[in-house]
Design a protein around this nucleic acid. Structure first.
Lengths: 147, 147
DNA sequence: TCTATATGGTTACAAACGTAACTGTCAATT
DNA sequence: AATTGACAGTTACGTTTGTAACCATATAGA
């Protein structure tokens, strides 16, 4: 009928692939820990970088500040995270994982590494390399276009 | 603090890239036509494949049937789509674009093609190729794992 | 010091979503 | 013909989301 094919359209394919890959991993932390994606991302950001502000978490994990705010609240309720006020600027709060949070982080990253390995298996070494370098290209473009 | 880095985790990178790439295009059809993503996908599926059932649209564009149902309703209200009952099986309905729907489809696909070109520019020819072949790897994996 | 503007973070509200339950229809079995 | 199970599509409900407004604090300029 026409020469446009949704199946070949990169934005569509990218979305579908992301859903497939991410959902498969999300199922793990959702089922086992009841975490949402923003929560997992926040945990991961704080776990690997140590103390950060909410804004920094947002930048690091590319999440909107309302998502971060809600995730921080949830993690705090779970006693995986604690806040401390910045000395000089009382608008800012520093976020840090508690011992329990660090423990959870370790377990989750173990899962994440296992999934990375599974992914290499699933996509093949070449497939994964191609994907990764394609993603790098996107990331470079994102930096250029960032407002 | 640890050797896990969210920035290097493929599911995260994939998600972020998809958001960036898809949102940039979504902004166009959302701003100019007030379409949601399910609506655009439904339009695209029907535009390129002609008459289909709702279930087929869902398979073709990997959307849950509730999304398809809502999108079909919205497009119908807009008079871009009409339903006709299947002769033999009254559960099934055939979906087809109206003249106005086809016109919209043409305009949207023009935008989509323009965006594809922009993408090649943005990612570079090699980057786009790598991305595409990485996506193919994911797609192959999806087929294998499809339940 | 007062005002204006920017910033960190939260919240209210409406839209979009997924899950599961539902309606109506069909096919197979009895 | 009646029953059962499967399937197409819709709807109800609770959750998650994004936008925009908001509060509190900080900074700069008059």
């Amino acid at each position: 009928m026409d020469d446009f094919d949704l199946e070949q359209f990169v934005p569509f394919r990218l979305n579908r692939a992301a859903e497939f890959i991410a959902l498969r991993f999300a199922a793990a932390y959702k089922a086992e820990y009841g975490l949402t994606r923003p929560e997992w991302r926040t945990l991961a950001a704080l776990g690997s970088s140590g103390r950060m502000t909410a804004t920094e978490v947002g930048v690091h994990s590319t999440m909107h500040k309302t998502k971060v705010s809600r995730a921080v609240f949830a993690l705090e309720e779970r006693r995986w995270l604690k806040r401390t006020q910045h000395e000089d600027d009382r608008r800012v709060e520093h976020l840090e994982l508690t011992a329990a949070g660090i423990k959870a982080y370790r377990e989750l990253t173990r899962l994440a590494r296992a999934y990375s390995a599974e992914l290499e298996n699933l996509l093949g070494s070449d497939g994964l390399k191609a994907l990764s370098s394609g993603l790098t290209a996107v990331e470079n473009a994102m930096v250029k276009r960032r407002r």
